[in-house]
Amino acid sequence: MKDKKVKVVRDSFTIPKTELLQIGEMKKRALTLGVGVKKSELIRAGLSALSGMTDAAFKKALASVPTIKTGRPAKD
């Protein structure tokens, strides 16, 4: 029996520049470990890590992320 393909969707979101730079640093870190990874794979790994947390740890992780204004940033 053939495995059913997982449907993928495209999305966009607003992220602070410092956190976007962290993604770049994590990609470099993965490369030093011999693992090439894409941004979307890092985000999915983060989701996997979050889903495995206890409620208390999950709540603490959410509290550590500041709320930002959504939407497109203003042009400089």
Rank of each mutant, 00 (worst) to 15 (best):
1 M>A: 07
3 D>G: 02
3 D>S: 02
3 D>Q: 05
4 K>D: 14
5 K>D: 15
6 V>H: 06
7 K>A: 12
7 K>E: 15
7 K>W: 00
7 K>I: 12
9 V>P: 09
12 S>H: 09
14 T>V: 13
14 T>G: 08
15 I>R: 05
16 P>V: 06
16 P>F: 13
17 K>E: 15
18 T>E: 15
18 T>R: 11
19 E>P: 04
19 E>Q: 13
21 L>N: 11
21 L>A: 14
22 Q>N: 12
22 Q>E: 14
24 G>R: 09
25 E>R: 09
25 E>G: 07
28 K>I: 04
30 A>C: 10
30 A>P: 00
30 A>L: 06
32 T>G: 10
34 G>A: 03
37 V>W: 01
37 V>S: 04
39 K>D: 14
40 S>V: 09
40 S>P: 00
40 S>C: 01
42 L>I: 12
43 I>G: 00
44 R>C: 04
45 A>M: 09
45 A>N: 11
46 G>W: 05
48 S>V: 09
48 S>F: 08
48 S>T: 09
49 A>Q: 03
50 L>D: 05
51 S>D: 15
51 S>T: 14
51 S>H: 14
52 G>M: 06
53 M>H: 02
56 A>I: 07
56 A>S: 12
56 A>V: 10
60 K>A: 15
60 K>M: 11
61 A>P: 06
61 A>Q: 05
62 L>T: 04
62 L>D: 06
62 L>P: 05
63 A>P: 03
64 S>T: 03
65 V>E: 06
65 V>K: 02
67 T>S: 10
67 T>V: 09
69 K>G: 12
69 K>F: 10
70 T>E: 15
71 G>Q: 08
72 R>N: 12
72 R>P: 08
73 P>L: 01
75 K>T: 13
76 D>F: 08
76 D>W: 09
76 D>G: 13
